[in-house]
Design a binder for these strands. Structure first.
Length: 270
DNA sequence: CTCCGATCCTGATGGC
DNA sequence: TGCCATCAGGATCGGA
């Protein structure tokens, strides 16, 4: 589920409710996530104050003086701030309990998410090799052009590689390629600098529009306030196989690229 | 190095 | 209505 816009929506939702508060406990009801939740997590975090909530790629970083809680929402995760005594649902696996009676509650039915402690997150193996943030200046047409040379992978697969660019998943790779007019099956190394300029612009515009809409909800995703994301209504190609292109009317096609679904318009994308 | 497929897990969905 | 197969937004890992 959550790609960069959904994680950013979550970050903006929870930050004002948790920053400045002390953690009084971490309650783990199900430790079997993508990686087991460390048994000593509560001991490490208890008594510390939340300094900030930031984001790197699809990871949420809850920052304390002594280290950082790294949270990944996997495919089906969401985070909400609720009263600590509200009864947890079946998939509410973990609570970070705050000093004001609220808690930050992780719900993750598929358990592909992760909650990890890192004393030095910048050098954590999960974070250190991630590519540039797409909404920051280092993500440029020149950068994309340079790192794509000689690469034979399909451009869509390439965009979804977090070592190339952070936070772009299946939905936004499909949408950005439509916006840039690029066929998702084309080899990354065969696209010109000019086309990468279009693509870079399209990625930034697509992600910003999605963040402004509160993300995309297909099934599970909810913002920190429990509301779904409204970018679903703005999707041009994702999940629209067989339906007419909103721009030209041609039937949207579905193909599999790298074992993931790709959607595109044959006449708008080449 | 690069690329591809398998893999972790649950739940929603659609066909019969 | 029920059962079963199929498919999901991610990212790592191993092997070719």
């Amino acid at each position: 589920m959550p790609e960069l816009p959904e994680v950013e929506t979550t970050r903006r939702g929870i930050a004002p409710l948790v920053v400045g508060h002390l953690v009084v406990d971490v309650a783990v009801r199900e430790a079997r996530l993508r990686w087991p939740v460390a048994a000593d997590l509560a001991a490490r975090v208890r008594g510390q104050r939340v300094n900030a909530v930031s984001r790197r790629s699809k990871y949420l970083l809850i920052e304390f003086a002594q280290g950082t809680l790294i949270v990944h929402l996997g495919m089906s995760g969401s985070l909400r701030v609720v009263a600590a005594d509200a009864p947890p649902g079946k998939s509410d696996h973990l609570d970070v309990v705050l000093d004001n009676g609220d808690c930050l509650r992780l719900c993750d039915p598929r358990r592909f998410g992760a909650v990890l402690w890192a004393a030095d997150p910048a050098h954590h193996p999960l974070l250190r090799d991630i590519g540039p943030e797409p909404l920051e200046a280092a993500f440029s047409a020149d950068y994309l052009f340079y790192v794509s040379r000689k690469r034979k992978r399909a451009i869509k697969d390439f965009l979804m590689d977090s070592h190339v660019v952070a936070g772009v998943g299946n939905i936004y790779a499909n949408e950005a390629l439509f916006a840039a007019g690029i066929d998702p099956r084309r080899a990354a190394g065969r696209l010109s600098r000019a086309r990468y300029a279009q693509l870079q612009t399209a990625i930034v515009a697509t992600l910003n529009a999605a963040i402004a809409a509160g993300g995309t909800t297909l099934r599970d995703f909810r913002g920190a306030d429990g509301r779904p994301g409204y970018f679903s209504h703005a999707l041009q190609v994702y999940g629209r196989a067989g339906e007419p292109c909103r721009r030209c009317g041609t039937v949207i096609r579905h193909v599999t690229i790298g074992s993931r679904s790709a959607f595109f318009c044959r006449s708008c994308q080449s």
